[in-house]
């Protein structure tokens, strides 16, 4: 397999398009799963539901509560999709990465943590108790998933001996990291759902708080939050492929196609998990994160470190 290289400057423009396509596919698949769970027939309207929802939100009027902090709310809303696209800059598609930074893994982590601030601002700024509760819930969630997530990333970097994502892909030439880092892979998938406040980790936008962060957002604001959530999930799925599933390596097909296929498969798995699991309360997940996931991911990092040093 040809090694991953730094792409031309214009490839940066491809990132939002590819990520958007992946996210749209994921959103459509989620609608299909929902329809099947409800016993409805899967029609073209179900498949196109994310697109029609986008159109509806684009023409919907924005409303705002009295004395809402619009600056913070809008900043937060815009930052969610922006963070997802920035995080995806370091993900290699085939053997081209839009931005093959020497510290790509840390960059991905930093950009995905922007969601913490963004969601809190989006919740706080609406001057609504539901948004406020949702924003605080996401911070609690962040404190629970972030350390296992970081240890999973550190494990990968230790295994590859580099923070550069292209080196990580190259290091999996013989053996994919998922084979000897299964715990890190599982922790990464869990945190992928958690960082995009999806599935069991959707208490920040939970129905019990009338939509939480989403409660008072309408029109374009709501669209950006919902799209940003799918973009984050897609970015995490694509990153999982580069970090654990050998990137674009595979027989017969070209590398870019393997990347797309694997990313779609991981995203499909995440969406399936999202629709098959019940919402997990934050006060419960905190203990799971700190008492179960952190020790497990630390052990995984230790095993990988010992293997690398031997």
């Amino acid at each position: 397999m040809t090694p991953v290289g730094q792409g031309a400057v214009w490839t940066v423009l491809l990132v939002p398009i590819l990520l958007g396509g992946l996210a749209l596919g994921g959103a459509s698949f989620a609608r299909v799963l929902d329809a099947r769970a409800d016993g409805r027939r899967v029609t073209g309207a179900v498949l196109a539901a994310p697109l029609s929802a986008t159109g509806r939100l684009l023409v919907q009027q924005r409303r705002a509560v009295v004395a809402s902090d619009r600056l913070l709310a809008r900043t937060g809303v815009v930052l969610v999709p922006v963070a997802a696209v920035l995080a995806a800059l370091v993900v290699p598609w085939g053997n081209v990465a839009a931005s093959d930074l020497s510290v790509g893994i840390v960059w991905f982590n930093a950009m995905e943590v922007v969601t913490w601030a963004a969601l809190w601002m989006a919740g706080w700024g609406t001057n609504s108790v539901w948004g406020l509760v949702g924003g605080y819930r996401f911070v609690v969630q962040g404190l629970s998933y972030e350390l296992p997530h970081m240890f999973a990333l550190i494990t990968v970097a230790t295994g590859a001996g580099s923070l550069r994502v292209s080196d990580v892909v190259a290091a999996q030439d013989g053996l994919w990291f998922v084979v000897w880092m299964p715990v890190a892979f599982a922790a990464f998938l869990i945190s992928a759902l958690a960082l995009s406040f999806a599935g069991p980790f959707d208490t920040a936008t939970g129905r019990d708080v009338a939509g939480g962060v989403l409660a008072e957002h309408s029109g374009v604001d709501r669209l950006l939050l919902l799209a940003g959530r799918w973009l984050l999930l897609a970015a995490a799925a694509a990153m999982a492929v580069a970090l654990f599933l050998g990137g674009g390596s595979g027989p017969l097909l070209p590398t870019w196609l393997w990347t797309v296929l694997k990313s779609a498969a991981v995203l499909g798995l995440l969406v399936w998990l999202r629709s098959r699991t019940a919402t997990l309360r934050m006060d419960r997940f905190v203990e799971v994160g700190w008492m179960v996931l952190i020790p497990l991911t630390l052990l995984q990092a230790l095993v990988v470190a010992v293997v690398v040093l031997r």
């Binding site: 020497s102 510290v103 840390v106 922007v114 601030a117 809190w120 911070v139 962040g142």
Partner: peptide, 21 residues
């Protein structure tokens, strides 16, 4: 100093969100 720069941004975001609370 790309590592230190990105790390400072990462830590500052996490720190200030907790700090906000």
């Amino acid at each position: 100093l790309s590592y230190l720069g990105v790390l400072v941004i990462l830590m500052m975001i996490m720190e200030m969100v907790v700090m906000a609370i």
